[in-house]
Design a protein around this nucleic acid. Structure first.
Lengths: 339, 339
DNA sequence: CCTGGCACTCGACCGAGCTGAGTGCCAGGA
DNA sequence: TCCTGGCACTCAGCTCGGTCGAGTGCCAGG
């Protein structure tokens, strides 16, 4: 149905339109891309591409622009990887070096990604459920009020406070700490329920109520409904492509303010090797139907810590953004695994 | 120079323009606000107001719009307090109730403020330097690597990790914890340097290097350069008033992405009783020269925890926003002081 | 000092007309 | 069969001129 030349025409349309933001006509196309055929032939090809739904025109006497389906085909089969320049790689590396904190790493990453791609960047904090416990500290703040501090292998620190029915002595707190600490260190959070299942049974009677409380909180807020966090940057980049957002960018900005939405965007990815691209209408989030999202997991190859990605108008440089996202993900993954 | 009627005219211009976003003419003004004088008289007054720089017109045959100076006069002398409705008060209260965490409180507050005012909302986390230490926990994560967890009276939790030259025994960690804990509990962070000044001298020799390290970190990252955090919400509201931003909202969005800028906006306020209003050009931040900012401190009356506020186009409902900001600040202050 | 009247200004709004990029289609040629 | 040049057609965007009316500034009279 679509021979090589037609695909070539589609590729040319996409690349031209992405860089110019203007409907591209047959003549300019035949000229600039030395396709070896005349504009009339290109027109015929275009008619076919349009029949198949890969391109469309805004009005009769205008050039063609790609549809979401056209972009999809382009991304899947037509875009070649665009390797980053050495300078870019160096920039990424230097920008990320010198970060101490996990917070710092994430903040730097998200800004870097926004700057490199010129899009909105989203970086998820290492997912709790996929993390490994490094330390669980239990402290009594006030009599009867405990603070739990969980530190994961990726440096994420979460705290929860809770009340226990009876104030504990320092010694009892120490016992609690030891009981949980010894069992949890090195355990993936997802595996915690199994590891802790028999804990209350073994505890001395005096400690049992407190232990049950702590256990409940650990399971509820750290394991079952772990708080996922995301960082966002580069929303100002949306204004640069104001033309791309027919109505306004209001719905886009609104969507980006919802943590839930951001998580939905990058939450599913779990493979650091495959880059995921969602184009326009493919997007499940109402209000982001005019945008495309490029995401990838980061972390060790056998299971990512979390995801990161960029969001922009469907008219984006997919090849470039895919490369950037992948490169940044790799560096961040190494950084977190190394530190 | 400006008699009562001229002031009344200015007030009418401001209120009309704020609600309609269209230059207001003499006739409409005389009609709607039953000033008791003819349009011609209003015109004369307008001419004076314009000479004095309080209003201006976009072009010769258009109505008048207030200048920044006009808004300033309006805010300072002409706007009456607009008390919130009972429903609004209830909404604020119910919206904020049920928050457990400090994080939760701040997040709810910032969203609430954005929703109530229809502007961009900014809420600063309780400033560390003005907070009181509730607890300082010291944990050895790995041999030679310590984690400090600081909890303040407002529920803010900060952690820092640091390396000490020699691994410590559990007992030594306990000594460290006791030494710091006993001295810091109940102390304002700003007063910490004095309280800890003589600490290394009193420590046993074996503990001294570690203590010096911890002390250095505490002083450097918690006292001298405490990390101020802010939350932001409602950027989508900027698009609603797209007409108000002559160029684009790009510079505004860019400014709002800078933590430093946000802190500058609300960082100075420290009085929970006085609402601060910065109008247009008064604003020190380039890029926010087309916006106005309404801020106030929140916390106990004798010294706020931090500031919060809203940002919007100069054409905003000052009276309403001032009331909302003040009301929200009061509730949050009570909530944090009470909990 | 206020008021009604009057001439004036100038942005907005509308419709006509032109332009040109781009299309679709068709007949002729490799 | 497929490509090509030619040709008529379409239509968004632009410009131009004209009208409209809101709003102004000024002035003479009350």
């Amino acid at each position: 149905m679509l021979d090589d030349r037609k695909l070539e025409v589609l590729r040319a349309i996409v690349t031209d339109f992405v860089s110019s933001n203007e409907p591209v006509g047959s003549k300019a196309l035949a000229d600039k891309h030395h396709l070896g055929v005349s504009p009339a032939t290109v027109r015929n090809d275009m008619a076919v591409l349009e029949d198949e739904g890969y391109i469309t025109h805004p009005h009769t006497s205008a050039g063609r622009i790609p549809t979401d389906k056209g972009y999809r085909l382009f991304v899947d089969r037509l875009s070649s990887v665009k390797p980053l320049s050495a300078a870019e790689r160096r920039a990424i590396q230097t920008f990320l070096q010198g970060a101490d904190d996990l917070d710092d790493v994430v903040r730097r990453t998200v800004r870097l990604l926004a700057q490199v791609t010129g899009q909105v960047a989203v970086v998820q904090y290492p997912s709790l459920s996929r993390s490994v416990v490094r330390h669980l500290e239990i402290v009594q703040l006030d009599p009867g009020r405990l603070l739990l501090v969980l530190i994961t292998d990726t440096g994420r620190v979460e705290q929860r406070s809770l009340d226990v029915p009876v104030p504990l002595t320092d010694e009892e707190v120490g016992q609690l700490r030891a009981a949980f600490g010894s069992r949890l260190a090195g355990v993936r959070l997802a595996d915690v329920p199994g590891v802790l299942a028999d804990l209350p049974d073994l505890a001395p009677t005096s400690l049992r109520p407190a232990m049950t409380c702590v256990l409940a909180v650990v399971l509820a807020t750290l394991v079952e409904q772990p708080e996922e966090r995301v960082a966002l940057a580069g929303t100002a980049n949306l204004t640069r492509s104001a033309l791309d957002f027919p109505t306004t960018l209001r719905p886009v900005l609104e969507s980006l303010e919802e943590q839930v939405v951001l998580l939905k965007l990058i939450g599913e990815v779990c493979d650091p090797t495959t880059v995921n691209v969602m184009i326009g209408e493919e997007n499940s989030v109402e209000g982001l139907r005019t945008t495309s999202v490029v995401t990838v997991g980061y972390g060790p190859e056998d299971g990512a810590y979390a995801g990161l990605g960029v969001l922009g108008p469907t008219r984006m440089d997919y090849a470039g953004n895919i490369s950037s996202v992948r490169a940044v993900a790799r560096y961040v993954g190494e950084l977190l695994a190394g530190g």
